[in-house]
Design a binder for these strands. Structure first.
Lengths: 192, 192
DNA sequence: GGGCTATTAAGACTAGGTCATAAAAGTAAT
DNA sequence: ATTACTTTTATGACCTAGTCTTAATAGCCC
């Protein structure tokens, strides 16, 4: 026997999810049924036709590309900012942030959020990190929301600004860093 | 007059590049010519039809998705690794790594390379960063190649490993960091 | 007007479907 | 086995966004 309807539909769904660029005809061969049966199945499962599936993948990609550059500039979403004083940002830990093995956030993402916040709080065209001392107090897991709080501690005349950033998951401190930032200062230089 | 042929074709090319999900019919309206003219233009410019354009965008995205997860696991390419001793990785600074304003690499990418290397050098299921002291000695610019070298300095009995990572652009040190890594050690604990 | 390019139109065909209708095959219970 | 039902297959008309071929018009320069 070929396969029960329900079984076939389950596999069909998985197959299309896994490789959406497959024609009804190929699916028909795969499950050894007629093309019409595949179409009935898709109808019942509300799976759109090939062209629509391709379009979805493509427009997803397009959305990504359109937003990717501006979003990349700041890691995490800044929800409060008082230039040269303090700033707060939020980062939701998603699957792209964690080790696939154990679902723990990779350190550099917490660092990136904090460092990026330290850059943002400085009211200057050119803000670069010179030095940092950081501590990871506890692991952050998939799904958790990290709130980073930056505070300007000191401004030294050589153009260095010291910023402390503490990150929390629900009032529990998970990360702490002291950032020494360089700024081009009053002289607004051209940067090629 | 409507527009010279050459002019229209130039604009057509740009328009399709900018928003590839546009039909010949819409283009015809846009340039106030017939659909056939648009098709002639596409033929001359060797621009594929809408469906082909969508497919290209979609398969690009697909390739990206297929490779994205495994690649994300290590930042930079590891070219040498002696577990628990030392490791070397290379990261080519591309446009996604730099500030759009001044083409200087964002600090967290250098950190990510170094941290990721520190994780890799530890021969353990679970390696996490506890603490780090880092220095950015000079800016790294778009197009430069960063070579990170990690060296295990010390192993403390509480499960901490101290690793020094120095990163270079052509023998010039651009980054230096001392990483205190936690490892689950002999006891292979369940992590979830 | 001729001669040229550029544009438009018309018709036949394509892939990968949709939608509606109907026939055939398989399965189960009486 | 007959009825009743589900499942599968087939058929044909239609759709979109094109292709490719052939042919008829415009527009312009001299």
């Amino acid at each position: 026997m070929r396969l029960k309807k329900a079984e076939r539909q389950q596999l069909l769904k998985e197959k299309i999810e896994e490789s959406p660029f497959i024609k009804d005809e190929e699916l028909a061969k795969l499950f050894n049924v007629s093309v019409q049966t595949i179409r009935l199945d898709r109808l019942e499962l509300a799976i759109p036709e090939l062209r629509e599936r391709i379009k979805t993948v493509a427009t997803d990609k397009w959305k990504e590309m359109v937003k990717s550059l501006p979003v990349e500039e700041v890691i995490g979403e800044i929800i409060d900012l008082e230039l040269d004083k303090r700033a707060i940002s939020i980062l939701n830990i998603q699957k792209e942030h964690v080790f696939s093995r154990n679902k723990i956030a990779r350190g550099h993402h917490l660092f990136a959020q904090a460092n990026s916040l330290a850059v943002a709080v400085i009211d200057d065209d050119l803000a670069l990190t010179k030095k940092a001392e950081i501590k990871f107090m506890r692991q952050v897991k998939l799904g958790e929301q990290v709130v980073a709080k930056a505070k300007v501690i000191d401004r030294i005349e050589d153009g260095t600004t010291v910023i402390q950033v503490d990150s929390f998951v629900k009032n529990e401190k998970v990360f702490s860093g002291m950032f020494h930032m360089y700024r081009s200062s009053k002289t607004k230089e051209k940067d090629e």
